[in-house]
Write a protein that binds this DNA or RNA. Structure first.
Lengths: 335, 335
DNA sequence: AATCGCAGTCGAAGCGATTCGACAAGATCA
DNA sequence: TGATCTTGTCGAATCGCTTCGACTGCGATT
């Protein structure tokens, strides 16, 4: 394996000059830089990551902790991960993948061994056991989602409360007076996951403000549950004309269930989802929706982390404003 | 940060002794080992990953290259990734995530910088541009999927040919005489992806062998395409009574489309899928299926890699035998 | 004219582990 | 009873890079 001394010799300079040419931390004359770059290419030199990390105390690796449990939509996680990796690469960093199940020990391990410079943690609970650790860790971190007490932490996510509100507003403007929220599975609420609660609050608050009748219904992520939910909603709330769905796997089954029950969507019943745009677009009837912008969250999370690594100031909270796209499942009340 | 010399001093031994106690590469008396372990706990020592990598030329990190494009079912990738991470951790390794789009340069980079010790590459094409590179790389690798020319490489995957055959056999044993394969999107075939072709071959060969009439139909991964496909199959092959589906997103829509067209499943038409068990189980009507065992493939891939890192022999090809589970969508022909 | 500052480079000292050779002391063998 | 192993430990070299301080010229400043 060719090393920096080989390059130095080949270019007729000292190793430190090669290093400075590479890092740009000290001025190097155009001429020698050229020679060095030529030598690097010719010899096929690649700096040894471990040596670099040891000498500079920077590994240029980010940790990404992904969740893997019920009620979390897999494609969202995946898309997020891909966007984190892509953005990290643009900043000359790599990404180490950790699973939730490694827990606090895993975080401590990769931080204390200096395997990673910084961490991105997904699926943060309202009172997450990892928060104290993240606060004391000497490495910067960014959380996806908001815990109950976020002071001293950097958090980013879609503004789920506003998203819930935006759905209600959209329905209200179309004249709907009675709306329901079909939410995440009960387990998600029991876990005290922030985004589920925030949607609920935003939904309810907006409905109250505009004087709409509203109800909230957690729902398992299965077609059968969707069918049961549709039946129940029609039975218990016959005056219902607007439904907000925040539960990806159920969006389609729910719409189909309503149709089977004789309701036309959107003529008799409007449906707005909170879900990734792709899911909403690809449905047989494209679904009006507030986008869950996982790719953007991933990109922004990495950029926040990079700023923190550069010791620049970052906002503690970043809430992405909801973006509602009207498609074919919402219509004015009464057709 | 506490380092090995601190531990050594605290325990009254030399740094090398601490190192040997940790690695077990030389015998250490029970007594000193105890003292060292106590010191480590007390001081909270964690070996510096970079220093370790530099000195030992082992980073204890694996690279995982994941695909991200049309026709690849996201949950399968995700589950695979999680099982790779979990298994790697059991072997004291971490996992660096790379995306396909980094391509050969990405592989070369992480290998040449000694950032990773070994690589796992998913979604291998029949003639994959990365193969020559992987062959010459000094680091071991395992491929998920089989290229056209696999000599000198270590590959593992479900035996897709046998899986296609198993589906046909199952249908044949139920008395079906005319079967169709609804496959991956055309793009997957055009990309020359091994598994798609292998399913086709296995399917066709088994049908021929048993004297069944068979046809093969690539299909886009959308409900609309499923509907069109169902209509077309009924029109062009009215005698059809058995369908094999190898296209996850389409399994459910296709069954629904058949039912809308007046066919009872399984009474009039049997359907077998090649898909993850969870998907087959969770359907409204549980689907008879050959499992795509992504978690097992991930585990086995890591174990192969570990053996290679230990310079042990491994088989060049590992084909996992298909496992067919009969559920509620297959029945004897004629009800 | 003396001084300062900056561009450009070098040499050497780490960074924090692993590993090799050496060595002492006791066990084993002929 | 030596010779030979094995066990348990130490010291020093080494891994390949970054970074700090120092040095040389040279143009700009006073």
């Amino acid at each position: 394996m060719v090393k920096i001394t080989d390059v130095a010799r080949h270019a007729g300079v000292s190793p430190s000059t090669v290093s400075y040419a590479l890092s740009g931390k000290r001025p190097i004359s155009e001429d020698t830089r050229q020679r060095i770059e030529a030598s690097i290419r010719e010899l096929g030199y690649r700096p040894h990551a471990g040596a670099r990390a040891l000498a500079s105390s920077r590994s240029n690796v980010l940790a990404l902790v992904i969740p893997f449990r019920t009620g979390i939509h897999v494609p969202v996680v995946m898309q997020f991960a891909v966007s984190v990796v892509t953005t990290a690469r643009q900043h000359d960093h790599d990404v180490l993948l950790l699973t939730q199940e490694e827990g606090e020990d895993g975080l401590r391990r990769v931080a204390d061994t200096a395997l990673v410079d910084a961490l991105i943690v997904m699926d943060v609970q309202l009172r997450d056991a990892r928060l104290p650790l993240l606060r004391t860790l000497d490495r910067p971190s960014v959380l996806i989602g908001f815990p109950a007490e976020a002071a001293g932490l950097t958090c980013i996510d879609l503004d789920f409360a506003a998203a819930g509100g935006a759905c209600v507003t959209h329905l209200a403007e179309l004249g709907h007076r009675c709306v329901a929220l079909v939410g995440s599975p009960p387990a998600v609420y029991l876990r005290q996951t922030g985004f589920a609660q925030r949607v609920t609050h935003g939904f309810t608050a907006a409905a109250d403000e505009r004087g709409l009748t509203s109800t909230v219904h957690p729902c398992e992520a299965t077609p059968a549950a969707a069918q049961a939910m549709a039946e129940r909603l029609l039975r218990e709330h016959p005056e219902l004309t607007g439904v907000v769905v925040h539960n990806e796997p159920v969006v389609q089954p729910l719409i189909e269930a309503f149709r089977r029950l004789g309701l036309r969507v959107p003529e008799d019943l409007s449906v707005v989802a909170i879900c990734p745009d792709e899911l909403a677009e690809q449905a047989p009837t494209p679904v009006s929706s507030v986008a869950v912008p996982s790719a953007e969250v991933g990109t922004r999370a990495v950029e926040l982390l990079m700023r923190k690594l550069d010791r620049l100031d970052v906002p503690e909270a970043t809430l992405l404003p909801p973006r509602l796209t009207r498609r074919a499942t919402t219509a004015p009340r009464g057709g």
